[in-house]
Lab assay of single mutants.
Amino acid sequence: SEEKKKAKERLERLGASSELARELLDRANGNAEKAERLLRKLL
């Protein structure tokens, strides 16, 4: 979806690899905010 694509791009801008961004979104069930929080914990 367009929303998921935007979320993935945002995670990548924050420093996630394409693969990591995809994994985070999967774990967050597509929830962009939750995926971002997970990423911030990792960085």
Rank of each mutant, 00 (worst) to 15 (best):
D26C: 14
R13E: 09
A32S: 08
L38R: 04
L43V: 05
S17V: 03
S18E: 11
A28P: 00
L20H: 02
R13L: 11
A32P: 09
S18M: 07
R13P: 01
L14I: 06
E2H: 10
D26K: 14
K34S: 08
D26W: 14
A16M: 03
E36L: 15
R22P: 00
R37D: 12
L25G: 01
S1C: 13
E12C: 14
A28M: 09
A7K: 07
L39T: 00
A7W: 10
L43H: 05
E36S: 05
R27A: 10
L39N: 00
N31A: 04
K4G: 13
R22S: 12
E23M: 14
K8V: 15
E9A: 12
R22I: 14
A28G: 02
E9T: 08
R27H: 07
G15N: 02
E3H: 10
E3S: 11
K8I: 15
R27K: 10
K41A: 12
A16E: 01
A7L: 10
L42E: 03
E2W: 09
E33P: 05
E2M: 12
S17I: 03
L24T: 01
G15E: 01
S18V: 07
R40W: 13
S1G: 11
A32L: 15
D26E: 14
E9Q: 13
N29Q: 10
A35C: 05
K5V: 11
K4H: 15
N31P: 00
L42I: 13
L11A: 01
L24K: 01
E36M: 14
L20V: 06
S1P: 11
E33D: 12
L39K: 01
L20N: 01
A35L: 06
K4A: 14
A16Q: 02
L20K: 02
L14N: 02
A28Q: 02
K6P: 06
R37K: 09
E2V: 11
A16T: 02
A35R: 01
K41R: 15
S17E: 02
L24M: 05
R40L: 12
S1V: 11
E12M: 15
R40T: 06
S18K: 10
K4C: 13
L42H: 05
G30E: 03
K5D: 12
L43I: 07
L43S: 04
K8H: 14
R10V: 06
E36F: 08
K6Y: 10
A32Y: 15
L25S: 02
E3L: 11
K8L: 15
R10T: 05
E36G: 04
L24I: 06
R22M: 14
L24D: 00
D26Y: 13
R27N: 05
E19W: 10
L14R: 03
A35P: 00
L14G: 02
A7H: 07
N31M: 03
E23R: 14
N31E: 05
L43A: 04
K4M: 15
K6I: 10
E19V: 06
R40P: 00
A32H: 05
A7I: 11
A7T: 06
E3W: 10
R37A: 14
A21I: 07
E2S: 11
R10Y: 10
G30I: 02
L42T: 05
L14T: 01
A28S: 09
E33N: 09
K4F: 15
S1D: 14
K34T: 12
G15S: 02
K8W: 15
E36Q: 06
L39A: 01
L39Q: 00
E33K: 13
G15A: 03
L42S: 04
E19F: 06
L14F: 05
L42F: 09
S18C: 09
G30M: 06
K8E: 13
L39S: 00
L42Q: 04
A32I: 15
R13M: 12
K6M: 12
G15M: 03
A28D: 00
K41H: 12
L39I: 00
K4V: 14
E19D: 11
N29I: 03
K5Y: 12
K6W: 11
L43R: 09
L38H: 04
E9G: 06
S1L: 12
K8N: 07
R40C: 14
K5C: 12
N29L: 08
E36W: 08
R27F: 09
S17R: 03
E9R: 10
R40A: 07
N29Y: 07
L39W: 08
R40N: 06
E9K: 09
L38M: 14
L11K: 01
L39M: 04
E12W: 04
L11F: 02
E2D: 13
A28F: 15
E19N: 08
A21R: 02
